[in-house]
């Protein structure tokens, strides 16, 4: 699993600049005007209670949804540009694998980008730990394997930015650790990772910086060290302390 351990390259999509972004559905304001800028590589983790708008913001940043107002610029270019979106990939909470073999799922994306190559496919499957399952139907894999394949497939486009929306939400600890390893590898290879999670300990393990959201806006954007030791926002403080209660079940809900 060392094939992707190349030195970090300059990320062509940074900096990200979001200005006055808002989004509403049928008159309900789901994101109030918010600003965000990201100029460092590594792993940005989005945290916050349910319904805060994390997944929504992720989709807006990736261009799956169109904002009602505001702008999203990746290295001065609008997310509306196809060339910008082509350099990004996204992994969803529930992986949507094609009903084909494991290998064919990778081939599909390589071919889509006119980069069909069995060598590249084998590399990707190898680093996902799926080399021996390449001929199996993708949907017969375990949940963890399916998500690994989804990440390998996302990486097949050679993205500059990788979005992950709670990729380990329904996985056991072992599968989770495997996914985290993949995410680390990707970041080390120079890919900008932006990931939503509900798992505080996972955030601690992965985050370089934390985007903390609450009630449809960004409460704070701090370095990981700062956020976990001394969060700047009241919302962040409250959330963290509720997480650290002895009962420690799931994240509290603000819905």
């Amino acid at each position: 699993m060392n094939t992707t351990a190349t030195p970090a390259r300059r990320n062509v999509q940074l900096p990200l600049q979001v200005r006055a972004l808002s989004y509403q559905v049928q008159g309900r304001q789901l994101l109030s005007p918010l600003n965000l800028s990201i100029d460092s590589t590594g792993i940005s983790i989005m945290l916050g209670p349910n319904g805060a708008g994390k997944s929504l913001l992720l989709r807006l940043l990736h261009g799956l949804l169109k904002p009602d107002s505001g702008s999203i610029l990746w290295n001065q270019q609008s997310i509306g540009e196809l060339s910008v979106r082509m350099q990004q990939s996204m992994v969803f909470q529930k992986p949507v694998l094609l009903r084909r073999s494991v290998a064919a799922n990778i081939d599909y994306v390589l071919k889509l980008r006119n980069k069909a190559s069995t060598q590249r496919r084998d590399e990707l499957l190898h680093s996902a730990g799926l080399a021996d399952k390449s001929a199996q139907p993708a949907r017969s894999l375990s949940g963890g394997e399916q998500q690994r394949l989804a990440i390998a497939r996302a990486l097949a486009t050679s993205p500059a930015v990788l979005f992950l929306d709670e990729p380990t939400a329904s996985l056991d600890p072992e599968a989770t650790s495997h996914i985290e390893h993949q995410v680390h590898q990707a970041a080390r290879a120079g890919i900008k990772v932006i990931m939503v999670t509900h798992d505080l300990s996972q955030a601690r393990r992965l985050a370089h910086d934390v985007i903390f959201m609450s009630y449809g806006t960004i409460a704070e954007h701090s370095s990981a060290g700062l956020f976990f030791s001394n969060p700047a926002s009241v919302a962040g403080k409250t959330w963290l302390s509720s997480y650290l209660q002895p009962s420690q079940t799931n994240s509290p809900s603000h819905d």
């Binding site: 799956l64 990939s89 996204m90 949507v96 084909r100």
Partner: peptide, 25 residues
């Protein structure tokens, strides 16, 4: 199920239809 994933991969609409037809064969 497929829409967001295919949209994310920037699959053109015609190719998306082909993909769906094949996947639901």
């Amino acid at each position: 199920d497929y829409r967001e994933q295919l949209h994310s991969l920037c699959v053109p609409r015609f190719a998306a239809i082909q993909t769906l037809l094949w996947d639901t064969r």
